[in-house]
């Protein structure tokens, strides 16, 4: 047997993650909530269209998918945190992790496939929700609500999800699920706020008059994947606002910080006694 990366082993771990996470009651609950939302948005906008459009205030009839996207985006990060915390922690708690790690596997193979599997579930959930919404809106009023921008926004959201899942998995290693969930929410909020605060000005400008809060903000902004930036980028794409992002800087930054997070996660997990 060779011990280079084996695609069949990675695939087995990946499908195992999908099978494991797809049974999550949270996923089912959020999906049912989304279906409810689709109908609420559909009938709600139909209702206000009459009063708003008659006064020519704005054109809402083509905005149903946008409104829906924004509503489901509210818990996008929350769902990623839930899956991020659960994907490894549940194996550690149940004893499955020790059975799996007793196999001839590198620990980072396992971590990578757990994160990608959880990312697929979250992404798949949003994709299905959006497509379903588009279908129902189409049946309802005959307009195609799914624009290319929404699809691109979903891919930006995927980047965001993977980063949040990795961060949450890291936080969950030595904490119980509830504490890890709360801490991951706090950290993600700090990063998002920092991304908004430091997005425009350059580093040299910010380094002047450094205080504690500013230092924490700068660390969050530069050392972690910019989840706030990718989230607002996705939002701008959907609403048709000018979605400006410096790909040449932000994509490598995302890649390097995500790999950094993953290396840290792998290092801590490799030292963990199971």
């Amino acid at each position: 047997m060779q011990f280079t990366v084996q695609p069949s082993v990675l695939y087995a771990l990946y499908t195992n993650t999908i099978k494991k996470e797809i049974r999550s009651k949270t996923l089912l609950f959020v999906f049912l909530l989304n279906i409810g939302l689709i109908f609420v948005v559909n009938s709600g906008i139909d209702l206000i269209i009459k009063s708003v459009e008659e006064q020519n205030l704005m054109n809402l009839s083509s905005q149903k998918a946008v409104v829906f996207y924004f509503l489901i985006n509210i818990w996008c990060t929350v769902l990623s945190i839930i899956f991020g915390v659960d994907c490894i922690k549940s194996d550690l708690e149940s004893g499955v992790a020790s059975v799996l790690m007793a196999q001839p596997l590198r620990r980072w193979w396992y971590l990578l496939m757990r994160i990608l599997g959880a990312g697929t579930i979250v992404f798949g959930h949003y994709l299905v929700s959006i497509l379903l919404a588009g279908l129902i809106f189409y049946i309802s009023d005959g307009t195609n609500q799914l624009t290319v921008q929404i699809i691109w926004a979903l891919f930006a959201t995927l980047l965001l999800n993977i980063a949040v899942i990795t961060l949450s998995a890291l936080i969950s290693l030595s904490l119980n699920k509830l504490v890890a969930f709360i801490l991951a929410m706090v950290v993600c909020t700090i990063i998002s706020v920092a991304n908004q605060a430091f997005a425009t000005d350059d580093l040299l400008y910010h380094i002047k008059n450094l205080g504690l809060a500013k230092s924490i903000g700068l660390l969050a902004h530069y050392l972690f994947p910019r989840i706030g930036l990718w989230s607002s980028y996705a939002g701008n794409l959907v609403t048709g606002k000018t979605a400006v992002i410096n790909y040449a800087w932000e994509l490598p930054h995302y890649g390097i910080t995500l790999i950094g997070l993953f290396i840290l996660l792998s290092f801590l997990f490799s030292r963990k006694e199971l």
Binding site: Q6, S8, V9, A12, N16, Q103, P104, L105
Partner: peptide, 8 residues
């Protein structure tokens, strides 16, 4: 089948 796959 899963453990078979894990062991290549």
């Amino acid at each position: 089948a899963f453990f078979m796959a894990l062991n290549g």
